[in-house]
Nucleic acid binder design. Structure first.
Lengths: 236, 236
DNA sequence: CAAAAAACAATCATATCTGTCTTTTTGTCA
DNA sequence: TGACAAAAAGACAGATATGATTGTTTTTTG
């Protein structure tokens, strides 16, 4: 899509003359259409990759004309920006949801994050991240969100497992280790650099590692031998 | 670059009427120009990413006209193919060179591979790998080479450290662990998802892990967890 | 109901990349 | 030196993406 060079946005006329009894039904429909377009963008990112995610493809995927699409997002950059924001919030939401679940063992974080990485949102995000390497505009949008995610990821874990506060170095290492291994595996699977069969042992090993790094590790090593209870299925 | 849809290559006329006293100097120059074009392609992949690595950009990077370029590679697909082959052989060459060095400790493999991953060749390769996810033609070219590399990577390590033959499961895990962590870190650094300062601790930890997985592990590193029992892999 | 605004659709002009073709330059050898 | 082929350069048409403009339908609202 190539995020065109920055343009001077012409003055947007006030979307509502006065904020009083404004229309509701139409606004709802517009929001719905915008959401449909954003979802279509994510699907396109997964199907075609960032490079081939063009405005016509997205419009077709959303079942709209390109003209209609440009009505909701005045240019491709705008659409990408909104899509990134949506993906970001979806990641955060998924994490918050996971934190509400009652059972919290050390290894739950691994399982939860691994499941996250199987979903299309991560593929789309990685497409964007790779493109951002050579696209400064895209990078400037993505970078702060990546940092925020990392921060919240750690905060979440820190809050969930307060006992780690005693060993901040180990905690940081465990976090980095988890993110690196899980994301690395997810990418390797996608790009065909890794065999599917190697996933299970790696997950088990990582869980063992985290347990071993835990400060007051009670029967830590045993955790690695725990029967796996996770139905791992590929998300479509 | 988008590797155009497959085309029927028209019959290539025999490059040399008769193989006798054919010109040598000119042929050498042609080979040199081809090499220059391939190098330019790699630089473009690093600078602009796969999507924006276009034939005009490569020609400009090589200091040639596009017409001259098309003389050496009849289409963009051909250029990409040759570039991939060159990158692949370069990776293998670098590994063979590393194997010739006298000192061989367990952690040497980590250091060596990590150094490899810092070079532009890996960035270019990853660009191609990501693009291949949504480009079947590119994937069909890349996949066998990826498999071959994995195979040779393991073979190299197996030959370098024969003592691991006693624990094939641990060996496989150590290999996967190394590749996943190192490649994952390299990508995370490139895409800005990871902080530079976290690299060193991770390298140190990985080395400890490998040492701990080693069969005749003599007093495994303190920081690392004790070697845990790994699921025994079925003999292949 | 009628005007206004939003949603949607269709088209145009521009730009770029691609593959092919033609022309010029350079080097090799009879 | 002059013929000849390779190397290099330039030009062309087809395809596609983009942003902008204009036209049409639907919905809100006075």
């Amino acid at each position: 899509m190539a995020l065109s060079r920055t343009r001077i946005a012409r003055p947007v006329r006030p979307p509502r003359p006065a904020g009083e009894k404004g229309p509701q039904l139409q606004a709802a429909k517009a929001a719905q259409t915008r959401a449909r377009l954003i979802e279509a963008t994510v699907r396109c990112l997964v199907k075609y990759g960032y490079a081939n995610t063009t405005t016509p493809k997205v419009a077709e995927e959303a079942g709209l004309s390109r003209g209609a699409m440009m009505h909701h997002f005045e240019n491709g950059t705008s659409l990408i920006k909104s899509t990134i924001a949506e993906l970001h919030e979806k990641r955060l939401r998924a994490f918050r949801r996971a934190a509400d679940k009652p059972v919290h063992e050390v290894t739950d974080l691994v399982e939860t994050y691994w499941r996250q990485l199987q979903k299309p949102a991560f593929i789309a995000f990685h497409e964007l991240a790779v493109a951002a390497r050579t696209d400064t505009e895209l990078a400037s949008i993505l970078k702060p969100l990546q940092d925020e995610f990392s921060e919240k990821f750690n905060a979440q874990a820190e809050q969930l497992f307060p006992e780690w506060a005693a060993a901040p170095a180990n905690f940081a290492l465990a976090m980095t280790l988890s993110q690196t291994i899980l994301e690395g595996m997810a990418i390797s699977l996608q790009t065909g650099a890794m065999d599917e069969g190697k996933v299970e042992p790696m997950l088990r090993h990582l869980e063992g590692q985290i347990a071993a790094l835990a400060p007051a590790a009670p029967a830590a090593v045993q955790a690695a031998a725990k029967p796996q209870r996770m139905p791992r299925r590929k998300s479509s």
